[in-house]
Design a protein around this nucleic acid. Sequence first.
DNA 1: GACCAGGCACATC
DNA 2: GATGTGCATGGT
Length: 223
Amino acid sequence: MNADLLEIYETLFDALGPQDWWPAETPFEVIVGAVLVQNTNWQNVRRAIDALREDDRLSPQRIAALDQEKLETLIRPAGYYRIKAKRLRAVVDWLLETCDGNLDELFKRPMRELRKQLLAVHGIGPETADSILLYAGRLPTFVVDAYTVRIFHRHGWADATDSDYHSLQASIESTLPRVEQLFNEYHAMIVQIGKTYCKKHSPRCEDCPLRSKLPKGGPIEMG
DNA sequence: GACCAGGCACATC
DNA sequence: GATGTGCATGGT
């Protein structure tokens, strides 16, 4: 890692302040949101969650009790609704089976083991698993997402070897104290920066709080 | 109309 | 193991 990630954190926090993530009422709502937000914007996810809430479906038992067509209809605004309905069902089925839907008990498990168990559930990949651990379980794992990869690459902070999810995650985690609140704010601020200043094809580096952290000559082109 | 958004599973080479 | 593709809504 070619950067002082604590210094970058301070720069971000000075510019953005606390992000108050995750925008959800309960840990279960975080889990639902983590599945629904896959490759989608949060605004659409909120519509879907509102629809679930309106139908009083924000518990594992009540989602499990839905037939597939009804579930698809409720979450439709989030996009990929057929796939996400299956994934959501796989998650609630697993929750009921593994801990009877008791999330307080679930998150008492050792983080590494729980992470493996999450990854074995259909529809839960590395980012979704880490989002659930961090924002629903308050467990200290660093969430890597597309913005993280883009921002770290464009700034030249990550080595070339840190290209895939787990190597970049390991590299970041080895550079920072393993503190849940730190990881919480860090990821949330990266997303905020990404949304506002680090678009795929139109970076607005001149306005970005991280502009002083860019290499000379501006951002490194993405492959 | 094109592009994008807080990924993942699956097919194919 | 690496790379490519389908999935779908709503905003800019």
